[in-house]
Amino acid sequence: MNNSRIWSIVIFAAAVLIFGLSWIIIGSQAGHNLTDAFLVTVAAFLTLSILSFLYKDNPYYKFAEHLFVGVSAAYWMSVGFWSTFVGNLLPRISPSLCTYFGVPYKGFDIFFFIPLILGVFLLMRLSSKMGWLSRWSLAFIVGTTAGLNLIRYLRSDFISQVSNTFVPLVTDWRGIGPFFSDFSLSITGQFAMSLSNWVIFVGVFCGLIYFFFSKEHKGAFGYASRMGIWVLMITFGASFGYTVMGRVSLLVGRLTFLFHDWLGLVK
């Protein structure tokens, strides 16, 4: 037996011992029974298995990963089946299936046969002869949502972003007036505001220039585009830095589970 095999047996034995003990100890505590002690232990085991990936890929991680995939895929399948298929489709097409599944029948609606047929077309993929029918279903989905998204992007992202750019570059400007009497500049107030508006305008302008594809980025155009990518990079840096703290708090949450819920070390 080589060294790594011995090590893996030792680690396996230790894992069995630790989690076995944990099961018995938690189960024997007041307010717990063996079933929920088992489940908490499983959760802790899976948590540690996933964390072990940080060290390297290992059998525990592989096990947790594969189990996770199977369970979660079936989870979504079940949720979809009950809420959409049984909940939305059946009550419109078949009284007898409704009785079988115990859902209230909502009255026959011929329109619900369309998705049913398209759904069956989709399943035709599995047959080599009728597979082309599945494209009808795909065309249905893609067509509908392409139309929907075309409008959605214009409406929500686009027009509001454009109209938000409409800010005066000299804020609180009341005209020059005789001897500039109406026009005051304070470093913190109007000046800073105007400066920010300028930066926003120049930033948006150069950013858009960067995204020009059909023009060579040379000369003045090139400078603007270069400026644009700088603004983009500053932004990416800032939002990267901003997210760090949020991610650390997620880890704290997991450690709390291990030390509080499982081991009970932290109250």
Binding site: E65, H66, F68, V69, S72, A73
Partner: peptide, 12 residues
């Protein structure tokens, strides 16, 4: 297809 769970997908 793997799964429609964000993190299970990442794990895989």
């Amino acid at each position: 297809y793997v799964t429609s769970n964000q993190f299970a997908y990442v794990a895989a």
